[in-house]
């Protein structure tokens, strides 16, 4: 019922680790909440440290380069980040 506030639950596969995220939370937020190690720094889409690659699924993002702190999953997604 409160899906329009909390968002829809989605499954995120990040570097082969699976966790649950939400369409209303950035990928970075969901990763941190699930204690998934992810490289990031400023959290505001400027430093570029949290750049990720989308392997499958859909995300909402205004940037050309996908940044975990700026993109919201639209469906179940599979993403990766170079270590």
């Amino acid at each position: 019922m409160l899906e329009w506030i909390t968002g829809k639950k989605v499954e995120i596969i990040f570097n082969e680790k699976i966790f649950t995220g939400s369409t209303k939370k950035t990928v970075l937020q969901s990763a941190i909440e699930n204690k998934i190690p992810i490289r990031y720094n400023c959290g505001s889409g400027v430093c570029g440290q949290c750049a990720i690659t989308l392997n499958s699924g859909e995300v909402k993002s205004n940037n050309k380069i996908l940044l975990a702190c700026q993109c919201y999953p639209d469906s179940n997604i599979n993403i990766s980040q170079k270590v």
């Binding site: 720094n41 400023c42 505001s44 400027v46 430093c47 570029g48 440290q49």
Partner: peptide
């Protein structure tokens, strides 16, 4: 400030 701080101060 956002550019100075987030892009330059927070970048490795």
């Amino acid at each position: 400030y956002k550019v100075d701080h987030c892009k330059l101060h927070h970048s490795p």
